[in-house]
Amino acid sequence: MTDISDLLSQIPGIEHGFGTRRALLPTSLASYQTTLPVKKQVHGTNIVEVTECQQQCGEADGFYTEQPGILLTVFTADCLPLVFSRRDGRAIAVLHAGWRGLIDGIIEQLAKRINLTDATENWVASIGPAAGDCCYQVSQELVDEFCQRLDLPTSLISPSHRHLDLASIAEAKIKQAGFYAVDRAGSCTICTKHASEPAKNKYTSYRRNSLHRVVDPTHPGISGRNQQSGIIIVPS
Results as ranks from 00 to 15, higher is better:
I4L: 14
S5Y: 06
P12Y: 08
E15C: 08
G17F: 07
G17R: 02
G19W: 14
T20A: 03
A23P: 01
L24A: 15
L24P: 00
L25I: 15
P26H: 06
P26K: 09
S31P: 02
Q33I: 04
K39H: 06
I47K: 00
I47Q: 03
I47G: 00
E52L: 09
E52D: 11
Q54S: 13
G62H: 05
T65A: 08
L71K: 13
V74A: 02
F75S: 05
A77T: 12
A77Q: 04
L80P: 00
L82I: 15
F84Q: 06
S85Q: 09
R86S: 14
G89M: 11
A93V: 03
V94I: 06
H96E: 10
G98D: 11
G98R: 13
W99N: 02
G101Q: 09
D104W: 04
G105H: 02
I107K: 00
Q109C: 11
K112H: 06
R113D: 07
I114V: 05
I114D: 09
N115W: 10
A119E: 08
T120H: 03
W123Q: 12
A125L: 04
Y136R: 08
Q137W: 00
Q137H: 14
S139Q: 10
E141Q: 14
E141N: 12
R149M: 11
R149H: 10
P153Y: 04
S158K: 15
L164I: 13
L166I: 01
A167N: 05
S168N: 15
A170C: 06
E171A: 11
A172K: 05
I174S: 00
D183F: 15
D183H: 14
D183N: 02
G186V: 05
G186W: 01
C188V: 14
T189W: 07
C191R: 02
K193S: 14
K193I: 14
K193F: 10
S196C: 14
A199E: 11
T204E: 02
T204Y: 10
S205W: 09
Y206N: 12
R207W: 12
R207M: 04
H219D: 07
S223D: 01
G224A: 10
G230P: 12
I231V: 13
I232W: 07
V234I: 13
S236R: 06
